[in-house]
Design a protein around this nucleic acid. Structure first.
Lengths: 350, 350
DNA sequence: AAACGATGGGAGAGCGCTCTCCCGTTTTGC
DNA sequence: GCAAAACGGGAGAGCGCTCTCCCATCGTTT
């Protein structure tokens, strides 16, 4: 059997005490140098730094947390029960939308040396477990990403004294900061683009209308068309998923055979719609122009590539982190919010 | 301005001491009841439980960690530098493959009440930060998911006494447990399926050949065809991505115009290949049959739906968790490994 | 020259828990 | 029936840090 020098023996990590002894100073002084918490004579700082390196010292987080009452950790909570045919939290992890958000969060957290704990909240038991987790002091605050408009978590977290920042405005007032997109503006941009292409028979595939974002996109789209002289826009409701987009498109083709423009409130639904149109013998974009929403990977990769409304998810994620850390550092502050602008990305489908 | 009863005042959490006082017993007894660490008279247990509920007590994790020297946390490390045109760790997060794995990990960890910390390792600085994180006692062990065959992390983590379980066998011996798929068998199954369809002009789009899994799939595929009487299989190397699949397919169409069967080592590459075939005027599956690998969402959703080799990722993720927790609970144990079987999923493309 | 604040270091308490040791009481074995 | 063992509870040390005091040594002001 192969034998390497692995797992030699984990001799106990050096403590502050050890470093202090090596440096010939007190524990307090070493602590001050490490945390830059008070002036220390430069030559002593140097001695301490050398001792830290010599001993390979690394502070024990549990001990520090015990006294500071901070964990220097944050949680990312993905919430959402499987309502209608919308995404459940579990499925959501495979959504490219989520991947981009997570990438942004991790990147923004990295400079602080913190790695987010990932949690799924799919039911009340999960909510309880997550709340307990925070109450135990495992994390100082939460980043909430939810596919569900009704949420108990903001209130629960607030009750255990943990600030939270939500992606998207909550459906009803809740004790959370949030970061959101100007969805209405996004819908308007989609309508304007389609109108400028000379289309006159628009339809819409909206997201679940109990979600504020879906409502807003739809309202903006209708508003845009109203200004372009089209007062009524037939619409079908989907659940942001591929399948629901396909289904909604079929329904709309039945109801409005003469349609020539589609706005789907997510790229996945746009992809489903395009396939449904294809199956019905319509060409995209020649016969029907399609605009999606999000600018996720499928928009770029599918054929025809989907013209879409881009959400600057990475920047939004970074802002969420900024807001959260700000509230953790200043527990007195209340919730705030930031709204980002959407951007039209023109590709092949419209 | 609206004013709710939010953030009333975070009165300090009750401690063990408080519970003990309420229950009229000692701290030690309460601790024993909570941790079920020794026999306690049933009636006293009952009294203690009542006191815990009455006070709303929840143990402070930092204090516990300080003495147990365990954090009851684990990290999920996503590693991989951007080699050639393979996926970088950041992009990888948007990969459905990763989403499924993560879902499996979170699900398997939930019963233990632990939520994984997510970290990206894209360069040596990240490796150092991650190693320090573990050394600080933030997590007891790591689940490694890498797109990169060369890895420093297993050795680094081992050096700080933290067990690790890797997804996929490491390229060279390393102090990690791992869970993997019988990739060779998967390649063989793909070849057999295509052969049974009557195809006789096979080609392959492999993954990056420095990755063992890609090698094995390719070897199995060639072996399968060899048994079916086809000694030589033209192949092009891709990077598991959509674009690389498209490119490789174009190249193969040039080199082997008469091809009638393609095995792509990932569904994403299969999707790219199908589009390239389509652009070249070939029908799938009538003219060319295509088999992918992974059974990821694109395989199910794209048209034609892709016949593929399924990796039981959720089960594999659960096994990774099991192996890791086992090693955390028994620090004496050495690395082990488990291999899973692939499964052919027949859809439209072959 | 005396009094004073400013500066930089050390001593030591204590964060909330676990766990070893200890001791009184009950059960067991011969 | 009596020693030994087993059981169930309490006391208290101490995990590795931070942070509040406290004190010695300066430099500065009147």
């Amino acid at each position: 059997m192969l034998c390497y020098n692995w797992s030699m023996s984990a001799d106990p990590s050096p403590t502050l005490e050890d470093v202090a002894r090596v440096a010939g100073v007190s524990r307090a002084t070493v602590s001050r140098v490490i945390n830059e918490t008070r002036n220390v004579a430069p030559e002593i700082q140097e001695v301490v730094r050398r001792a830290v390196i010599a001993t390979g010292y690394v502070p024990n987080r549990a001990a520090r947390s015990l006294v500071t009452r901070r964990s220097d950790a944050v949680g990312v909570v993905v919430a959402g029960t499987d309502l209608s045919d919308s995404l459940s939290a579990g499925q959501f992890l495979t959504d490219p939308f989520f991947g981009r958000l997570l990438t942004g969060i991790i990147g923004a957290l990295k400079p602080r040396g913190i790695f987010p704990a990932l949690m799924l909240a799919e039911n009340e038991a999960d909510d309880a477990a997550i709340t307990a987790y925070f109450k135990q002091g495992n994390a100082d605050g939460a980043l909430l990403i939810s596919t569900h408009p009704e949420e108990r978590l903001p209130a629960l977290l607030d009750a255990v004294g943990r600030p939270a920042v939500r992606f998207a405005r909550p459906a009803r007032p809740a004790p959370v900061s949030y970061v959101d997109l100007a969805h209405r503006e996004g819908g308007r941009v989609a309508a304007n683009h389609l109108a400028s292409l000379g289309r006159r028979r628009p339809v819409a595939i909206s997201g679940p209308l109990e979600i504020p974002a879906a409502q807003e996109r739809q309202a903006g789209y209708e508003e845009g068309w109203a200004r372009a002289g089209c007062a009524f826009v037939p619409a079908a409701e989907g659940g942001f998923t591929y399948d629901s987009g396909e289904r909604a498109m079929k329904e709309l083709l039945d109801r409005v055979p003469e349609l020539d423009a589609v706005f789907a409130a997510s790229d996945l639904m746009a992809q489903g719609a395009i396939h449904a149109l294809h199956d019905a013998g319509r060409r995209v974009p020649e016969d029907v122009a399609v605009v999606g929403f999000d600018d996720s990977a499928p928009a770029r990769l599918s054929r025809p590539a989907i013209t879409t409304i881009r959400q600057p998810l990475e920047a939004m994620a970074a802002e969420m982190v900024r807001l959260l850390l700000e509230r953790i550092d200043d527990p007195g502050a209340g919730p705030t919010s930031v709204i980002f602008d959407p951007e039209l990305i023109v590709r092949e489908s419209a």
